[in-house]
Each structure stands twice: as structure tokens, then as C-alpha cells.
């Protein structure tokens, strides 16, 4: 008798499990691609390198180029979160550096680069007087940067490969910190001795007494390169050609707007960043701070990352990782 009930129980539980599964799998099946009204979800991160996106948002450029479009802007804290949201089909467009894009592509994410956004002065800042190059770090030093696999980490590894013939030499010194936390830790002048960061944080750090830059992004790479690129999922690009084209046009319009109206742009951005207008104007016209849609440095990043095992393969053809009509440097 008892045995019978326990078998029955198991049967009930299994049925519930399978019904649950069925519901989960059918939920996911809803039509996401209703055609009435255009929609786009765009993710940005915080920082001056994303300035054209703020202009695009504030001046409603996308809405002017494609009336009736519904633009959903999201500000996410880090690249991994953007990548995961795009994977889960919650975002159509994400902005990030080239290395995190390549990591996702290597692992099988279906996405390609749609445009460059900005080049930017980024670099490694320290307060220690006796540290003049990356060779001067000891095992007691700590270097803060956003996360392993970030463009900052890859650039530091590039410099290490050149100086020590081993890209991973300084990996043991790394501490993962968001830019604002890293800046505070560095300014505290304690165990974080150096910080690899981007504007506006790098500008603020270098204003302080005794802070100096020991390695810039372009020194690490050996050339100028695109810091932030726009990436879209294959699904968005293939299913919504009208919205995709409008998005690319709007992005390029926004970049042009900054070029033609730096003063007005600074005013718009000052509100966004809660900084004085003069400071923003100084930052966006800083030497090395360039907004353009050309993508530079793809081959150097890819070759380095394959050589050191950060990704497993090189693209066969550049069209595997960029959409048609994207300008890039060979």
C-alpha cells in the first residue's frame, strides 16, 4: 500500500515538473517581432567616450530620422551585463570596446560591429614617484582596472608582452574595480598604486599632485585605435533593416554634430555629466579624444588575443565581424 502511494507521488511530481517545463518553453515563444511601430533598445555605459549617444538621445536625432520609432535607452554598469542582455535578446545595440566584443564573438554570440564611436586618451596612472614604466612594479603593487578581458586589461597585457615577452606578467597584481571606485582607491594613495582608466576619470586623476601617466593606450598598442564601437545582434540587423539604417545614420549625424557644434554639445553634455560646461568642452576637445565612425585596430586586437589565448580563433573574413558599409582600417 505504502509503496503504491510513493510511486504515485513521484508520478505527480514528475507531471508537475514537465508541465512547468512546457510553460517555460512556450513563454519564450511569444512573437517579439510585431511589425506595428519601430522599436530599438540601445545600451550605453558612463563616460565621455559615449558622448555622441547622449547627443543622439537629447536631440532626439533617431526620432527625427525615423518618426514613430520608440527608442529605449539603457545605461548599464559594465560590458558583461550588456553582453548578457544582448544574448537574452533584451537589447538590440550595445556599445563597448573591441576586446569584449571579440570574446563574445569567439564564444558564438551572433553579433557584428556596426560602427566606430570614439577614440580616447586612456592610460595607466600612478601616484608612486619611483614607478616610471611598467617594469618598476613590484609584487606589492596593485593595479585597478575594470575587469579581466576589458580593453584596459588587454592593453596592459600588450605592453607586458612587449616589455617582458609574457602578456600575463602583471596579471597577479590586478584588482577589479569600476572606474569611480578605482579612482577613489587611487586618490586614497594606499594599496591601489595604479589605475588603468579612461576620461573623465583619467583627467581628474592627472590633475592631482604627483599623479603621472606611465603608459598610454596608444603606447601599449603601438598605434591609435578605436576605443568604443557599436555592436548589433544579427537578429536586429536582419529583421529590422529600416531601423538599422536609421540608427546608423543617426549615430553618424550625432558624431558630426559634435564636430560642428562643440560649444552646444558641451552644454548638452554638461547637464548629463553634472560637470561645468567649460570643463566638458575642454574634455571633448582634448587631444586624442576623437569621435568618428571609422574602426581602427581590429587586426592588432584580434592577433594579440589569439596569440595569447584570450580568444580561440581569428575571423576568416572581416565580414564575419562587421556589417556591410562599415568603415574600418585595414
Amino acid at each position: 500500500m505504502r509503496k503504491k502511494t510513493s510511486i504515485k507521488n513521484i508520478g505527480i511530481i514528475l507531471t508537475i515538473l514537465f508541465i512547468g517545463l512546457f510553460i517555460i518553453s512556450s513563454c519564450n515563444n511569444k512573437d517579439t517581432n510585431e511589425t506595428k511601430g519601430y522599436k530599438i533598445s540601445i545600451a550605453e555605459q558612463y563616460g565621455l567616450a559615449y558622448a555622441p549617444l547622449q547627443i543622439m538621445k537629447e536631440n532626439k536625432i533617431m526620432e527625427k530620422n525615423l518618426p514613430d520609432v520608440e527608442v529605449n535607452w539603457e545605461q548599464l554598469g559594465n560590458t558583461a551585463a550588456i553582453r548578457e542582455a544582448m544574448l537574452a535578446d533584451k537589447l538590440d545595440v550595445g556599445f563597448m570596446a573591441i576586446p569584449p566584443f571579440l570574446i563574445g564573438w569567439d564564444k558564438g554570440m551572433e553579433w557584428k560591429m556596426a560602427s566606430g564611436l570614439s577614440q580616447s586618451p586612456i592610460g595607466l596612472v600612478t601616484y608612486k614617484e619611483d614607478i616610471k614604466t611598467i617594469k618598476d612594479f613590484t609584487k606589492n603593487d596593485r593595479i585597478a582596472l575594470p575587469q579581466p578581458g576589458s580593453v584596459q586589461h588587454i592593453l596592459l597585457s600588450m605592453a607586458c608582452e612587449r616589455e617582458f615577452s609574457d602578456a600575463k606578467t602583471l596579471d597577479d597584481l590586478l584588482v577589479t574595480m569600476k572606474h569611480p571606485d578605482g579612482m577613489n582607491a587611487l586618490l586614497g594613495r594606499k594599496d591601489i598604486t595604479a589605475h588603468f582608466t579612461s576620461p573623465p576619470y583619467i583627467f581628474k586623476e592627472l590633475e592631482q599632485d604627483g599623479m603621472h601617466e606611465i603608459l598610454s593606450g596608444s603606447e601599449a598598442m603601438g598605434r591609435d585605435f578605436t576605443f568604443i564601437v557599436g555592436v548589433t545582434t544579427n537578429k536586429f540587423h536582419d529583421d529590422n533593416p529600416v531601423v538599422y539604417d536609421a540608427f546608423i545614420k543617426s549615430l553618424h549625424d550625432a558624431i558630426e554634430f559634435i564636430h560642428n557644434n562643440p560649444e552646444e554639445s558641451a552644454e548638452i553634455l554638461a547637464d548629463q555629466y553634472k560637470l561645468p560646461k567649460e570643463e566638458v568642452l575642454e574634455y571633448i576637445t582634448w587631444e586624442g579624444m576623437e569621435y568618428n565612425s571609422n574602426i581602427e585596430g581590429i587586426y592588432e586586437f584580434t592577433d594579440f588575443m589569439v596569440r595569447n589565448g584570450y580568444i580561440s580563433k581569428k575571423f576568416d573574413d572581416i565580414d564575419d565581424i562587421i556589417w556591410e558599409d562599415v568603415e574600418y582600417e585595414k
Binding site: A80, R83, P148, G149, T176
Partner: peptide, 20 residues
């Protein structure tokens, strides 16, 4: 994150996340 290259299981999971 890792201090001295090793950072525990939480760090292990985080590292796996950033490299997808």
C-alpha cells in the same frame, strides 16, 4: 577580484562570466 592571482570561488565564477 584577485589579490596575488588567486581570488577564490567567487572570483573564479566572475572570471568565467567576463570571458563568457
Amino acid at each position: 577580484g584577485a589579490a596575488g592571482g588567486i581570488g577564490g570561488l567567487g572570483w573564479f565564477i566572475f572570471k568565467k562570466r567576463v570571458f563568457m
